[in-house]
């Protein structure tokens, strides 16, 4: 028992020494990781939010588009990277492309359902009082759908931050790098040096966007 504890303490202090001496590697990997994941989510937002808004009054088309993005979601990440290899080669570009495609579905779905979910009575009141479609969107639909849209972005961010570790397989960098090194050299220290910050980043992203979600909820919709 005591021996185990002693071993544990020794191991932790070893691990801390290890991180200290590899701090620069860890920092670069974390930076790349952030860049990869938030870059892709941002790109996903820029495409999926306007697309979701545009689709919100086109039910038929929306069903098809959502089916396509849903299918994308089911393709395993590694397979996807493999598929893009001949097309986009190695590096950051194919990594971000794949991550971006994954981020589309949750953001698109939430934008679409968020806007569709706005109480029809409120929409009718807006139209009936003489709002143009654009005014209706900005004065009523978007503010009311905003919490749902942010929730979609939060879900996408949490996923993407953990999936971004896959980028290492195609030379995209990020926290997947130390993990891959650790797997190949059977060194648990390397694996943990990638896995722990990746998990913390995912938690942080979820927490921060959860806050934004609460703050973005109009006071009239809370409680």
């Amino acid at each position: 028992m005591l021996w185990r504890l002693r071993f544990g303490v020794m191991w932790v202090s070893d691990f801390i020494d290890f991180i200290r001496s590899n701090l620069d590697v860890a920092a670069v990997a974390t930076y790349q990781h952030l860049y990869l994941s938030f870059g892709s989510v941002l790109l996903g937002m820029l495409i999926a939010v306007p697309l979701g808004i545009w689709l919100s009054d086109k039910e038929r088309l929306a069903e098809k588009v959502l089916a396509v993005t849903g299918t994308i979601q089911t393709v395993p990440g590694l397979a996807f990277l493999g598929l893009f290899l001949p097309l986009l080669g190695l590096g950051v570009v194919p990594s971000m492309t794949v991550l971006f495609l994954y981020s589309l579905l949750p953001i698109l779905t939430n934008t679409y359902t968020g806007i569709r979910g706005v109480n029809p009575a409120v929409v009718e009141a807006g139209i009936g009082m003489g709002m143009s479609p654009r005014q209706l969107l900005f004065m009523v639909k978007l503010p009311l759908a905003f919490p749902v849209i942010i929730a979609g972005i939060r879900i996408a961010s949490v996923y993407i931050v953990s999936w971004a570790t896959l980028a290492a397989f195609v030379g995209g960098g990020g926290l997947g790098d130390p993990i891959l090194t650790g797997i190949m050299t059977a060194d648990i220290n390397f694996i943990l040096m990638g896995a722990i910050p990746a998990a913390l980043l995912a938690l942080a992203a979820g927490w921060i966007l959860g806050m934004v979600e609460r703050l973005a909820t109009p006071r009239g919709l809370r409680g």
Binding site: A121, V122, E124, A125, G126, V140, L144, P218, G220, L221
Partner: peptide
């Protein structure tokens, strides 16, 4: 225009 379900803008 006044509708049955009131339809005030909750935001």
């Amino acid at each position: 225009y006044v509708i049955q379900q009131i339809g005030l803008f909750p935001n």
